[in-house]
Design a protein around this nucleic acid. Sequence first.
RNA 1: GGCGCUAUCGUCUAGUGGUCAGGACAAGAGGUUUUCAACCUUUAAACCGGGGUUCGAUCCCCCGUAGCGCCGCCA
Length: 528
Amino acid sequence: MDDLDLKFENPRARIAPSPTGTLHIGTARSALFNYLFSQKYGGKFILRIEDTDPARSEEKWVKDIIDGLKWLGISWDEGPNLLNSQEDIGEFGPYRQGKRKNIYAKYIQKLLDNGKAYYCFCSIDELEAQKQYLMSIGKPPIYNGKCRDLTKAKVEEYLKEKKSYVIRLKTPKEKIVFNDLVHGKVETDSELLGDMVIAKGLNDPLYNLAAVIDDFEMKITHVIRGEDHISNTPKQILLYQALDLPIPQFAHIPLILGPDRSKLSKRHGAVSVNQYREEGYLPEAMINFIAFLGWNPGDDREIYSINQLIKDFSLKNCHKSAAVFNPQKLLWLNGFYIRQKNITKLTELCIPYLIKSGLIKEVKDTEKLPPVFGQEPVGHKYLIIETKEITDSLEIEKMVLLYQERLKILSEIPELIDFFFKKELDYTAGLLKWKDAGNDTIIKALSLLEEKISLIEETNWRRQVLLDLIGPEAEKFKDGNRGYLLWPLRAALSGKDASAGPFEIAEVLGKEKTLERIARAKEIIAKT
RNA sequence: GGCGCUAUCGUCUAGUGGUCAGGACAAGAGGUUUUCAACCUUUAAACCGGGGUUCGAUCCCCCGUAGCGCCGCCA
């Protein structure tokens, strides 16, 4: 295991998801590890859609998987919908098993011809009863080999009768050993496997056979996949041997577990990459987080971009034990990456959420924009619904900036900054009260604020000016506690018990609205 | 039930034949602060059990235990 890295020349790794559901976190992690491994050693990463089961496969899941991987920034060198091609996802050719039926027929026939496989005509009921019995007496539920030695004539006869059949592997008795790149030596006794079904028909392979054939045809050198496949590996090795094909290297990476320590699944909540995407997680955070489930560079560093991961990734540092998915850490990581983001980019990312919440609406017809916006609109233009005013994304950028360090996921942005967009804030008098302040104190504070703020020139409307003017007032207003003056200000401007600071909000709001909101606060108090 | 894999703070993990067993998230306390964040300081928190090997085991070996995975004419 020591000289691992030296042997990895031009590896070909792959991910082979079946389009029977949305892109799962676990699949994404497998994809990532295969991607990192192949890119690190100058090899190729291949995406293959494993749709051998047409009953469960759907085109929309193919799209979901592709979209999810692209979003994460995991690109593939070969396979469906190459990133730099315009190829339609419906036409992948050889990278979709469903389109490879004829290729499989050749291999299945070979197995039959050289006596490595045989027809089995046993009924499902018969098999099921047998299985139940064996399980009940504590034996492995393997096939009893009834059809193993059927004469050629008998087989012909059954076939002529159109009796339904499957094809089974004639499993030899032997110890199957393979050297797993993360687990080391793994041994299995083939007797425990039995004569497994490998195909439902002459060109209808089951998963294990299809995977073996495809991996060979695509010249896969390294099979990196979840540990749940570790017990499939001996079966596949048997198939490689029966077909006389070269056996690739295997690496089984630890499973991702839910909080109850069972394999992460829907019942644990969100397992879909695209669901996280919709909730406003950043791909950088997802990648960083997922990479560290079962891998780490061997020291204390834990902020990693995908490119840094390629540099430092090694199968040697992969764990053997499963890891619990910790949503809190993901959330923290996401907040971290949001704070790192360039504000213009962050605003762009937030805008879809603001539109969805109904706070803003894109102005499609730029001709209707008022002259202040000039001929050439700078950035996007948006219509603010509630106040019926038009503004542009630079204005929204200012709002987002105030909340950049408070934001954990993008979908939180509407509820955080909605007060900027509203004509009238909805709150009760109690919100304006700081500690033991009575109504008279609050009114006094608001009046003082009104008076001071009115002195500021529109052209001089900046947070620093406000601070210089009001800061000293707050100091001496009551008991040397700034809250008596500043809390009502902030509450009146935001209508919330938690928000950004009053001066920064006021700056974005502008003088007119700031005074309006203070006046409104006074009315609310007066009504009590 | 059979077979396989695994085992360090609650979680992700580093690490070593002799360490105060380190970091991060979460939690607690404090600071900063009008609030909430962010930020800073700080506290608590772990080597599954039993046998060996050894002067000495968290680390190496064996056994046990527990957890998980797989046992399909699904993938």
